[in-house]
Design a binder for these strands. Structure first.
Ligand code: SF4
Ligand code: SF4
Lengths: 144, 144
DNA sequence: GCGTAATCAGATATTATTGTCTTAATTATA
DNA sequence: TATAATTAAGACAATAATATCTGATTACGC
């Protein structure tokens, strides 16, 4: 069980975070990403395609091609990535899986849960990835 | 995407909550559960079996048989159910899906995330289902 | 121009999850 | 004791998620 986000989405988050740590203007190839992150090559390829189509990344084909952020890192949040890959229905849904239920006749956990959902949302939008990159310590992420 | 818990687990939570609302000592059949909750009959059957094997429910075969809680409602929390169905690895895992990473060299969201995980855990253990049943308003859950 | 390195795109394969069906075992009750 | 209702169990089917493969396309560098 992957928690909250699909595996695809996790990979996407990791990849974008990695890109954010590379010097501005450089391209990073899928191959590079795949070895650094240890995720399956072709699968990541598809994910990068999605992110590119959504306009979060730009890609360059051909020799010495690769991917880079399409926007300044300070204009991207984790939310954008989750939105592009998994969608953001979770902001509305019930943890217990009850359909058509939200707040009128609340069950005993609704308040707690509604707050939690808010927290997840906060976590996703609070920091842009420029800030995140600055604060991230993972040495294996730095350009070698 | 089902949020946090698998669909199985959601059904399990719903079913146990329903059972908690039935008068103590009565048995509820799968058929009854399935129509009240609107979930697939046989699938639910299997889930009930699991919960029974784990000792959370007791079952009675035969005519006028069914399921009931195996423990007093005040001794059961949502955590027990999640534990039985999905497992509780999520209490340790990283939202971003990074393996082998937890707190040393924390990334920029680790603190927020760790708190969030704690909140989810809290939500699951805070109330026992006796309290929840008392506070739950869902009229379609009451015995007719 | 040509060869190489890279992404792009789509087809396919594998695995996990969800759902269905069928039969057997069990029990209350008529 | 026969019958009907019910869970138990396992086989099967459908769907969704994850992963891999292959060929095409593009761009760079020689
Ligand atoms: S009231 Fe309870 S069941 Fe309804 S949406 Fe809120 S948490 Fe879910
Ligand atoms: S530091 Fe960041 S990447 Fe590591 S476990 Fe915590 S949240 Fe996940």
């Amino acid at each position: 069980m992957s928690i909250i986000f699909s595996r695809q989405c996790e990979y996407a988050l990791q990849a974008v975070l990695y890109l954010a740590l590379q010097p501005r203007g450089t391209l990073t190839s899928s191959k590079d990403l795949t070895t650094r992150l240890g995720v399956p090559y072709h699968f990541l390829g598809k994910i990068m395609q999605s992110l590119t189509r959504k306009g979060l990344l730009r890609s360059q084909k051909g020799s010495s091609g690769g991917f880079a952020l399409a926007l300044p890192p300070k204009d991207i949040t984790l939310f954008h990535i989750v939105e592009a890959i998994d969608g953001v229905d979770f902001t509305k849904k019930c943890v217990l899986g009850f359909p058509e239920c939200s707040g009128k006749n609340p069950c005993a956990v609704h308040h707690q849960w509604a707050g939690l959902r808010e927290n997840i949302y906060e976590m996703l939008v609070r920091k842009n990835i420029a800030e995140m990159a600055k604060e991230t310590k993972k040495p294996e992420f730095r350009a070698r």
